Amino acid sequence: MSQLYDVDAIYRAMGFHCPPFRITPDTSFFFPHSQYLAALGRLRFGASSGGLTVLTGEVGLGKTLLCRYFLRQLAASPEVCTAYIFNPKQSYTELLASLYRDLTGEAPELHAAGALHDALYAQLIRLAEAGKRVIFIVDEAHALEPGLIEGLRLLTNLETENRKLASLMLFGQTELDELLATRQLRALRERITVWHKLRPFGWMETAEYVNHRINRARAEGQFSFTRAALLAVRHYSGGIPRRINILCDRALLAAFAHQKSRVDLPLLRLAARETFGSVQSL
């Protein structure tokens, strides 16, 4: 039987209390870069305005991490209630039930869409009377069927004489931009008050991101990437955080195998070949 490595022990031996480049959306690794801070500012505006907010970006740009970080901020506001949809592959009835459960903490006893809609509306009224703002947040929204998006729009049309009862936030890949551009969803598109798009990191941003994650996970020691290696990270990853994480994790383990306390350009190239296959030299 081949020997299994204790990966956590490898990270500890390199001076880290946890893996610096895991790809799970861990909010403790949130990168406070100007792009993400600007996105948070727009999300906060959208939440307070009661309108429709859309945030899109290519795969791996950190949308889910940003979404969860924002949810954590909202949880600290006693006047805000959120309903979070992370599985968009649902029927409209299942969607209504999920929203009701998030807002009440109880599974609905009703099973028909019309009855669930009425129960949800009554709950929104109660929350509004208690001075609460309700925000529906949908992650992976590009996977929503157009009919579900239209249903969410109708839900956010619910209002009293002086205020909307709920606002809506959609996080998704760039396919969501294309979906919202269709004629079928023109009524929803006209209600978008905030539409923000994430972009890949540049050269300097990539270096700052890598160093941020290393410093966040560091327990001791001086493990680092050389300047040339950081430039190569941007070259091979395209500045996409998920690809950066995968590449840098492979480079870190390569450094351990070669008994080095830093990643230099040859090690980074080796990691790029192992990660992405055939790669172009700098």
Rank of each mutant, 00 (worst) to 15 (best):
K132Q: 11
A166Y: 10
V138N: 11
A97P: 05
T182V: 10
L179Y: 10
G238P: 01
G57R: 11
A13H: 09
R163A: 11
S91F: 02
L40V: 11
G50L: 08
C81L: 09
A107M: 09
E150G: 00
E145M: 12
Q259P: 01
S34D: 14
L66D: 05
L96E: 12
R191T: 06
R213P: 00
E208W: 04
G15I: 08
E161L: 14
L188H: 05
R199C: 01
M169C: 10
A130D: 10
L170Y: 08
Y100L: 14
I10M: 11
F30V: 04
H33C: 11
I192A: 04
Q259C: 07
V80W: 10
F86Q: 14
G50E: 11
R216G: 02
G46A: 06
S281F: 04
H235L: 01
F223Q: 15
G131K: 09
F30W: 05
G172A: 07
D6P: 00
S281L: 14
P19Q: 07
G62D: 09
A39R: 08
Y69F: 11
T64K: 15
L247T: 03
G60S: 07
D102N: 13
A254H: 08
L176F: 07
A141M: 02
G60Y: 00
V54R: 10
A187S: 06
K164F: 06
F70Y: 10
G238E: 08
T64D: 09
E220W: 13
V210N: 03
V194R: 04
L52S: 06
H142M: 03
L247S: 04
Q35T: 14
E145T: 06
R163Y: 00
L124Q: 02
G238Q: 07
L180C: 08
G15V: 11
Q123H: 13
A166S: 13
E178H: 13
G221S: 08
I244L: 01
H17L: 01
A271D: 04
L282M: 07
G51R: 15
S98V: 07
G46D: 09
